[in-house]
Design a protein around this nucleic acid. Structure first.
Lengths: 144, 144
DNA sequence: GTATGTGCAAATCATTTGCATTCTC
DNA sequence: GAGAATGCAAATGATTTGCACATAC
């Protein structure tokens, strides 16, 4: 299996764009942990390592990362998107508490079947899905 | 089945808040169509009917509408949330094209089973879900 | 009467953009 | 060397907030 950087290089080449050390640094940092990330947090993580990369560079890279299938939007919260990397990692869905915001991740194989069904029924080339189940967690459901 | 306004009145009373004609006007307009809506579009619809309601009043109402279960977030696009009303209407999921943004709505009963499964497994009081399947539509998939 | 809700204008905050400079291919 | 990408500072646009006034309970 190719590394994330190799996938990105292939994508960039195919699109006739240019790769840069900044982009490779950002991608390396995204894949350095298994967690979700958002732009600001990623920016601070880079700064903490004295890697001076501007926020616009991150913002400008994200559409390419989405398009190349390395990451996807996970959920929109607190006024900004939270992303997850999907290349080389199992995609997961989210169960979230409407009150405290606490999030549980879970796997759901049934959705692959649904993806295939949708692909056939609507003639789409399906690339993925985003599922959020919401409600109240054990602690919060007592107080509503 | 109680009307949306009645549900909202009950919610407001229970929370010790106050109802106003502005709020009832907004709710009536939301439920006047079966379509999704966003704040700006709703605001313009109200203006077109000479109903002078400010945007902050809409923004301030939305958390209550979410909490009372009258509406839910459908998807975040073009820099803002799009909502759907769920009280008295069948919830639906979305199949969206990553290229042209075209969206197809579909029903999926299997997700109710999943909701029950999550409720039991994680001891959540599940209130709903949001599912987006994405990929490329028949027209766009030819050109990627 | 109290304190919640409203409209307005100003503030906030994530994201985008213009531009001069640097760098990739 | 052409045209992409970068960083900075400024602009944008959705949303939120402060405040004076109105109004629901």
């Amino acid at each position: 299996m190719r590394s994330e950087i190799e996938v990105f290089r292939g994508f960039i080449r195919k699109k006739g764009l240019r790769n840069t050390p900044e982009r490779e640094t950002i991608i390396a940092e995204i894949f350095a942990t298994h967690d979700h990330f958002d732009v600001d947090e990623l920016y601070l993580r880079l700064r903490a390592q004295k890697k001076k990369i501007s926020k616009p560079s991150i913002y400008r890279l994200i559409p390419y990362l989405l398009e190349s299938g390395l990451i996807q939007e996970a959920y929109f919260e607190d006024g900004h998107w939270h992303y997850e990397h999907i290349y080389g990692h199992e995609h997961h869905c989210h169960l979230r508490c409407l009150k405290c915001g606490n999030t549980v991740e879970f796997q759901e194989k049934a959705l692959h079947k649904l993806e295939r069904k949708m692909a056939e029924k609507y003639d789409f080339l399906v690339k993925g899905h985003k599922l959020e189940v919401f409600g109240y967690c054990p602690k919060c459901k007592v107080h509503i």
